[in-house]
Simulated scan of single mutants.
Amino acid sequence: MYGCAECGTLKFIPFRCHSRFCPTCGALYSQKRAQAMSFKLINCQHRHCVFTISKELRHYFLEDRDLLNCLFDAASSVIHQMFYKMNKSQNFTPGYILVLHTFGRPLEWNPHIHCLISEGGVGDTGFWRKVDFFSFKYMRHAFQTALLSLMENRITDPQKKAQFKREKALSYKNQKDGFYIYAKPTLADKNTVAKYIGRYLGRPVIGLSRIDSYDKEKDTITFHYNRHDDEVLVTETIPAIEFIKRLIQHIPEKDFKMIRYYGVYGRHRESDKKLYRLIHPSKKPFLQSFLKWRSGILSSFGYDPLKCPKCNSTMKFLELYFNHKRVSLEDLYEKAMGKCRPKCRAPVQTHSLSC
């Protein structure tokens, strides 16, 4: 509850649900995630690659979600080995970010890895070396071999393992060129990189713009998408419960990391701090301020939520309510005492909210 010190007007501001599937909170989460990635990027050209798998293997990742880690490990090993072969003595290392997507455009189960990789890397000497040629023939075969080997080692059930060995042999027979890896054009401009991060790496399962209508009588939902093969617009109407089933299968497990940083972006060395970043560190606070709650409401809906509707003065925080009951800040501090860091032994009144 906020109050105006000038005219006494009171106003309640609701909490956010913080759910990734909420149209509002999920969009904000995606924006913050894309912004955090852009802060890590080096000021160089990047390439966006997509590591895919065959349809016959998708059900293994749905039945055992721990196998999704194999996608990260396989893609990372391929990129690391490819750059290592260029200069073994200098330990040539690029910077790359791997993002897991488990959905396709029709919301079906389709796990694949999006990779944003720098076209170059830094060695032990600290000098940057530019690389503008990637051997996708090698990457396809290497990714197929690495992923199938990792999956075979992770599957422990004897019956499933025997079935997987048969499908593994068929995979080598049917996909003689390896798993399909799609590489988008080089991202030379930093604004283009930022757009790609927001569009491909930070997007939710489905946007509100793709949901056309909801029929209350028939309990059906109509949505559209562009078919990946030929970009033809497809409109699909399905029961609401089926729509929900398609969505919730993409909810990740608790504490599962959908975004992982590798190479230069994943390590913390003093020499790497000398590399020029895509966004200068001095601009971070300014850009982060646009995603704060008050600024976000103002930019999205055109009004300041803390402005008094009567006298237009800035309202101040008065009280906090949870489950329709007033909660004092002292009570919050008392409850947080059990979660404080072991070194923190300060009186309750001196605690900060972050503590």
Rank of each mutant, 00 (worst) to 15 (best):
K168P: 01
K168F: 06
A169E: 14
L170C: 04
S171H: 00
S171T: 15
Y172T: 02
N174L: 14
Q175K: 01
K176A: 10
D177G: 03
D177M: 07
D177C: 08
G178P: 09
G178H: 10
Y180W: 02
I181W: 05
I181H: 00
Y182V: 07
A183H: 00
A183M: 10
T186H: 05
T186S: 13
L187Q: 11
A188M: 02
D189W: 00
T192I: 04
T192V: 08
T192R: 04
V193D: 00
V193L: 13
V193P: 01
K195M: 10
K195T: 09
Y196T: 07
Y196S: 10
I197K: 01
I197G: 04
R199H: 14
R199M: 02
R199A: 12
R199Q: 09
Y200W: 03
G202K: 05
R203S: 15
P204W: 11
I206G: 02
I206D: 11
G207C: 13
L208E: 14
I211V: 15
I211H: 12
D212A: 11
Y214L: 12
D215G: 09
K218S: 12
D219F: 01
I221D: 03
I221F: 06
I221V: 15
F223G: 04
F223H: 06
Y225I: 06
N226M: 06
N226K: 09
N226D: 12
N226A: 08
R227G: 06
R227F: 04
H228F: 07
D229F: 06
D230S: 11
E231G: 03
V232E: 15
V232Y: 02
T235A: 00
E236W: 01
T237C: 08
P239Y: 09
P239S: 06
A240E: 13
A240C: 13
A240Q: 07
I241P: 00
E242C: 03
F243Y: 10
I244C: 03
K245Q: 14
R246N: 14
L247D: 09
L247C: 11
I248T: 15
Q249D: 10
H250C: 13
H250S: 08
I251F: 07
I251Q: 15
E253M: 13
K254R: 12
D255Y: 10
D255T: 09
D255Q: 11
D255R: 05
F256C: 00
K257I: 02
K257R: 15
M258F: 03
M258I: 13
I259N: 01
R260H: 03
